[in-house]
């Protein structure tokens, strides 16, 4: 009797299940409880975020805010993952992949286009004229972009604000006396009354024994009493050369050098800024120096070569004012 009733119920259930789209799953009360607790904990953390935000002069506020928000999000995530894994039915569906191609429709589209042009006689010419129009319009559309920068004027890359007689000043604008420059250290200098933030402005000054200098031909007089000046901008990738090494005990230590901290190109100040090590492909541009009657350091002209990273043709020319 009871068995028959159960069978009946079971059959009805089975018939009902056949009509369902999503199959029936068994309840999982512990998981459900866990999800509810996780969501409530998430709400608490999210509210804590609001409270923490409202408080003033809270030490470690960024940390507390981040922890509250992060934990709230993670609790919500945990609840959702639990829902996905334990609370909703995970069916296994099958579906055919879309067909590789639909040739009939493709052919129809081709025909629609082809047949639409029955009144046209000089098709190729028309297409070429259309192409010319579209292409020219496209060109016209991008032309204003040339205003972004003078596209063809690359002359400015040769420019540096050094002219004969310009004084060398420090970062506060105080001019250097030749006697300020001491051995075994380095100085940053800028052109007086020019923008220090130009790539051609910063210069590094060091003083060596005049006897140790072996400057290239034609640059013998660039140095002043052993003081040499080079562009502070690395010829490799444009970083500032703010490293100077000098040996304390010359017999066993490396020779003096200017070094760039980006890729460690190393330049020899004694030989005209030639490359001792690293990826730089050309020496540092050298600034010729002179001393005025009052003892101030002045440029005797512009750099021996273009300043900063190289570009095509960079060797051709000296720096220009």
């Amino acid at each position: 009797m009871v068995g028959g009733l159960l069978l009946l119920v079971g059959r009805r259930r089975a018939r009902e299940d056949e009509q369902r789209i999503v199959p029936r799953g068994t309840p999982d009360t512990p998981a459900e409880t866990a999800v509810i607790l996780l969501l409530l904990a998430c709400a608490a953390c999210a509210l804590a975020f609001v409270v923490l935000y409202a408080l003033d002069r809270l030490p470690h506020q960024t940390q507390l805010l981040g922890a509250a928000l992060g934990v709230a999000l993670l609790l919500f995530a945990a609840a959702l993952i639990l829902i996905g894994k334990r609370l909703v039915v995970t069916e296994e569906l099958e579906e055919p992949y879309p067909e590789e191609e639909r040739l009939v429709e493709t052919h129809e589209i081709e025909r629609i286009v082809e047949e639409s042009g029955s009144r046209i006689t000089r098709r190729r010419l028309l297409v070429m004229a259309g192409g010319a129009a579209a292409g020219s319009l496209g060109l016209a559309a991008v032309t204003p972009a040339v205003s972004l920068g003078p596209l063809l004027d690359t002359d400015r890359f040769y420019k540096a604000p050094w002219t004969r007689g310009r004084r060398l000043v420090d970062e506060h604008g105080r001019p250097y006396l030749a006697s300020d420059i001491e051995k075994d250290t380095f100085y940053s200098a800028y052109p007086e009354a020019a923008d220090p933030e130009l790539i051609g402005s910063p210069v590094v000054l060091v003083r060596l024994d005049p006897g140790d200098l072996h400057l290239p031909d034609g640059r013998e007089h660039y140095a002043l009493l052993g003081i040499v000046a080079y562009s502070k901008i690395c010829t490799h990738a444009g970083c500032a050369i703010s490293l100077y090494r000098k040996p304390t005990f010359a017999p066993v230590e490396p020779r003096p050098a200017l070094v760039c901290p980006c890729h460690y190109s190393t330049f020899d100040p004694a030989t005209g800024g030639t490359v001792l090590f690293g990826p730089a492909g050309r020496p540092l541009p050298q600034l010729p120096l002179l001393r005025d009657a009052r003892g101030y350091l002045r440029a005797a002209g512009n750099f021996s070569g273009p300043v900063g990273p190289s570009w095509g043709g960079v060797r051709e020319d000296r720096a220009r004012a």
Binding site: A145, V146, L148, G149, L151, R156, F157, G200, G308, W311
Partner: peptide, 11 residues
């Protein structure tokens, strides 16, 4: 140089 000039507007 042209490209850099376009992007940076100069050196």
């Amino acid at each position: 140089a042209n490209l850099a000039s376009l992007i940076w507007g100069g050196p």
